[in-house]
C-alpha cells in the first residue's frame, strides 16, 4: 500500500502541453487532492479521453486508462462495476465528453454510478488545433466557424442537473486550491460527480483567457448558496455573463447504482470465484 506523495504521483514522462496551458493547474490540483485524501495509488484509476486533456494520463502516476475519444464514462462504469474498491476518476475534454461522448453523460448522471467526471472545459478543441467546441459561446470564431458559432453554447451543468446528477460543480484552473477542494469533495461524494473545469486553452482560445475568468468568477460558497436547493442550483447554473459562479452547485445523497446489484453488495466481481455453484440448477427451466 503506497500512499501518494508530492513526488510519487509524478511521472517522468515529457510534458507536451503548451506553456501557459490551463491543464497544468488541473494536474496540480489533482495531485494535491490525491495527496490530501491519502488514497493508496494502486487504488486509484485515472481514465482519460482523447484531446490535450487526455495527456494527463502520462503525467499522473496512478493506474491509468487512456481510452478513445468520448468514452471516458462507459470505461469508468465498467471498471467501477468490476471493482468497487477502486477510486475511479475520469478526465474528459469538452469536445470529448459533450460532443463525441454526450450520449453517455446524462445516463452516467442519472444512474449514479460512483465515478468522478472532471471535464477540461476550454471551450475549444485543443489537440486538433482550435475548432469550435460545443461549449464555445455563440458567435465564437474559429477555423470551423469563421462567421461565428451559430447555436447557443451547450450548458453541461444544466444537463447534469436535468439528469439528476447527485454532485454538480464548476471549478476554475486559475484557483488551484479551490479546484483541489472541489476535487476532494467530488471524490468523497458517494455517487456520480461532475466538475466542469474552466480550463484555459492558452494557444487557441483568445476569448476565454485567464483575464476573462479572473474578471468574472465568484465562489458560490461565499454567497451562501444552499447546495441542497435544486432550483437554486439551476438558477446559478444559468448565470453566465458578467458573473460566473464556481463551486458546488448541487449535492444530494441518494443511493448509488451498486445498491441495485445484490451480486456485488459484499464482494467486488474481480474478487469472486469464477466457478459457478450448482450449474445444473440453471438448466432446470430448459428441461
Amino acid at each position: 500500500m503506497e500512499l501518494p506523495t508530492r513526488s510519487n504521483v509524478k511521472t517522468n514522462e515529457t510534458n507536451t502541453w503548451c506553456p501557459g496551458c490551463g491543464n497544468f493547474g488541473v494536474l496540480r490540483a489533482l495531485q494535491s487532492a490525491l495527496v490530501d485524501l491519502k488514497i493508496p495509488r494502486e487504488q486509484v484509476v485515472l481514465v482519460t479521453g482523447i484531446g490535450c486533456h487526455g495527456k494527463i494520463f502520462n503525467y499522473l502516476n496512478v493506474n491509468g486508462f487512456h481510452g478513445i475519444h468520448g468514452r471516458v464514462l462507459p470505461v469508468m462504469t465498467g471498471i467501477k462495476l468490476a471493482n468497487q474498491d477502486l477510486t475511479v476518476i475520469g478526465h474528459a475534454g469538452d469536445g470529448d465528453q459533450y460532443d463525441e461522448g454526450i450520449g453517455h453523460f446524462p445516463h452516467a448522471a442519472r444512474r449514479n454510478v460512483d465515478v468522478k467526471l472532471f471535464t477540461h472545459d476550454n471551450k475549444v478543441y485543443g489537440l486538433t488545433t482550435g475548432q469550435t467546441a460545443p461549449t464555445s459561446i455563440k458567435g465564437y470564431v474559429s477555423k470551423t466557424t469563421p462567421l461565428g458559432a451559430f447555436p447557443p453554447r451547450l450548458e453541461p451543468l444544466k444537463i447534469a442537473l436535468a439528469s439528476n446528477a447527485s454532485f454538480v460543480a464548476r471549478g476554475w484552473v486559475g484557483d488551484v486550491d479551490h479546484l483541489k477542494e472541489l476535487m476532494k469533495a467530488a471524490i468523497q461524494h458517494r455517487g456520480f460527480a461532475l466538475i466542469d473545469m474552466l480550463q484555459v486553452c492558452f494557444t487557441f482560445n483568445r476569448v476565454q483567457n485567464y483575464q476573462f475568468y479572473r474578471d468574472r468568477v465568484y465562489k458560490l460558497e461565499a454567497e451562501g448558496h444552499d447546495t441542497s436547493d435544486y432550483y437554486a442550483a439551476i438558477q446559478r447554473a444559468d448565470e453566465w455573463g458578467e458573473k460566473i459562479p464556481i463551486g458546488i452547485f448541487y449535492k444530494e445523497d441518494r443511493p448509488i447504482y451498486r445498491s441495485s446489484l445484490p451480486q456485488i453488495e459484499k464482494t467486488p466481481l474481480v474478487k469472486q470465484s469464477l466457478k459457478v455453484e450448482k450449474f445444473s440448477e440453471l438448466l432446470q427451466e430448459l428441461m
Binding site: G67, V75, G78, A82, V270
Partner: peptide, 9 residues
C-alpha cells in the same frame, strides 16, 4: 467500452 473497462479491471 464498459466491457473493456471491466476487463481492464
Amino acid at each position: 467500452n464498459m466491457a473493456i473497462g471491466a476487463s481492464y479491471a
